[in-house]
Every structure is written in C-alpha cells, then in structure tokens.
C-alpha cells in the first residue's frame, strides 16, 4: 500500500504522531456508569445556584452602595452585569477546563 512506510501502517504512524503531540488523551479509567450519572447530577445541582448567588451578591452590594452614596439606582444597575459575569465565572470555574469536577 502506498501509505505504508518502514513497515508501519498509516494508522500506527498517525497514532504515534498524535501521542507525541499530546493530542490523544489516555482513555479514562473505567468508571461504572452509575458513578458518571451521579457526577452529572452533582454538577447540574451545583450550577443552577451559582449564577443566582453571584447575582444576589452583586445586587446587594449595589443596593448598599446606593444607600451609602444616595445614587439610587445607578450603582445597582452597574453591578448587575458584573454579577452576571461573576456567575458565569463561577460556572466556568466549576466545569470549565482545569476544574476538578
């Protein structure tokens, strides 16, 4: 076959190249299906609260600063997008790359 070289098939050489480039991750250790399911449930239960919690904190901070500086409602309006961003940050930290879960 034209793709064969040095007695190695194309598949073997491709696998070798991918492995040396770090493209192929070692297969995950055989976890039982139930463990994967409970992991998914765990993540789903974590995430719903994360966004809301950050938003609540942001609104409370904005409301408090408004009371302090008598600028209602501008600081609260300014803090809501920050809170939404912080909520998404929480979610990314929980499930994004580099997370443990």
């Amino acid at each position: 076959m034209s793709g064969d070289r040095e007695g190695q098939s194309f598949e073997e050489r491709l696998g070798k190249a991918r492995a040396s480039a770090g493209l192929d991750r070692p297969p995950p250790e055989g976890k039982p299906v139930s463990a994967a399911d409970s992991g998914a449930i765990r993540i789903a239960m974590r995430l719903g609260v994360e966004i809301v919690a950050a938003l609540v904190i942001a609104v409370v901070i904005g409301w408090g600063l408004d009371r302090l500086f008598h600028t209602r409602p501008w600081l609260m309006i300014a803090f809501v997008p920050l809170g939404a961003a912080a909520g998404l940050r929480n979610v990314f930290r929980a499930v994004g790359p580099g997370s443990k879960s």
Binding site: V52, A53, V56, I57, I61, L82, R89
Partner: peptide
C-alpha cells in the same frame, strides 16, 4: 478594573451558593 470586581463578587457568592444549595435541596 473590570475583572477584579467580578472575581470579588464571585468570591463573595460562595457562601450564598453553598448554603442555598443544601437548604433548597
């Protein structure tokens, strides 16, 4: 100036999400 408040709010939201999750469930 934009990212530090976000990180700070995200940090402060930890106890809220931690307590509300258990309580709500």
């Amino acid at each position: 100036p934009m990212l530090v408040p976000i990180e700070f709010i995200s940090y402060l939201s930890r106890p809220v999400s931690l307590s509300v999750r258990l309580f709500a469930n």
